[in-house]
Design a protein around this nucleic acid. Structure first.
Lengths: 207, 207
DNA sequence: ACCGTTCTAGAACAAATATTCTATAAGCAA
DNA sequence: TTGCTTATAGAATATTTGTTCTAGAACGGT
């Protein structure tokens, strides 16, 4: 074979860099090949289309992110799962910008390439299962409200705490962990075992 | 004058609808004029460029959103400011999708049109002042950590609680207010007057 | 040395896009 | 009416986009 000057991973890495610097829409086949000084033919030799590249990039990144998250839930440690976000973000700053600053649709709009569609669906199922498991085991039930609470303390709140720093491409400071920890403790304690209500705590007027 | 079949607001409304349905990048001059059945000339008669349209749309929307927020802070009511987000989202679902699902850079990438640049800067100053005021008056000081806490309880967390519902274009259910309220109470109480630490509460082992 | 596979190389192409331009029609004021 | 302003109307243009296509170079096995 003719010597391979660029491989699959080179294109993915260049795409990630471009996306982090100028947003996913700036990842054009032209900007990509220009950055690598590769011909467009080399790109299409490896990727069926631009959508396939961006889809693969997104999927690979979110799977890496979810790994530690799922592990923590499986180990029954909700707080560790919540704190996984700032931890992972610190060690994977660029990947984190890619993933948490943009949505799936910023990478591939419309229908996803067939080969990836399955991966996306499986990915969605994985998180759902995590939330269900946490709601059942820690919150005392998997009804809609407890599922929503699980999603908030495990994912939404940690991501929100981290996001402003990602926008400046800086690693989240320790205070971020404190925010996540305090949120987790307050909201999980309020529901633990399904006894106490989340709001309307005794003596606190509801507004 | 030749009768005006379309005006400024028509284009803004159509742009908003397109952005909500298919993302800001789907707001092209062609899709816009096609939806209104207007000629491109009519568009460029009112807007200097596509960037100006999208910039105006974003700015006008975020200013409307911030109005109630700023008012609540000025009234010294932090919890009301935190709860303003779900409230405003319910009464302005489309505007909320536009604003909270995308970032400023999804509307205008690169430099902003000169006329709008000033408005964007002023807008940024307004929120910063709100956070500072809240940190000073309620949290007992405007150091970096308290500012970060203010931003989290007043903006980041409420937006995070609301976002999953916006992605499905559904109004946020009451549980969302409970999440925001509980988060606010837990984090603000921990810092009120600057006495207690956010983490490492007495009797709680830090991890 | 020869062949076939793999990859580089980049020109060529079609579709989409923002913008400009010229022409025309509708109202208003004199 | 005659002019002036404002807005519609849409063809024309230049650029950028993703993708395809053809040609040839580099290597491995025989």
């Amino acid at each position: 074979m003719g010597r391979a000057l660029f491989d699959h991973a080179d294109f993915l890495a260049a795409a990630r860099d471009l996306a982090v610097e100028h947003g996913p829409s700036a990842v054009t086949v032209a900007s990509l090949t220009e950055r690598l000084e590769a011909p467009t033919g080399s790109f299409y030799h490896r990727f069926a289309s631009r959508d396939v590249l961006l889809g693969e990039l997104w999927l690979k990144t979110i799977l890496a992110y979810q790994e530690g998250f799922v592990a923590a839930i499986d180990a029954g440690d909700g707080l560790a799962a919540a704190l996984h976000t700032p931890r992972w973000v610190r060690t994977n700053l660029d990947d984190a910008c890619l993933l948490l600053l943009y949505s799936r649709h910023d990478f591939v709009q419309g229908e996803w390439p067939k080969a990836l569609k399955q991966g996306v669906a499986e990915q969605a199922r994985r998180v759902t299962r995590c939330f269900e498991r946490f709601a059942r085991d820690v919150l005392g039930g998997a009804d809609a409200e407890r599922l929503r609470l699980a999603q908030f303390v495990l994912a939404d709140a940690p991501i929100a705490a981290v996001r402003p720093h990602l926008q400046r491409r800086e690693p989240p400071p320790p205070i971020v962990d404190d925010l996540i920890r305090a949120t987790y403790r307050a909201l999980v304690a309020a529901r633990r075992g399904g006894r106490r209500r989340l709001s309307a705590r005794p003596g606190a007027a509801r507004r």
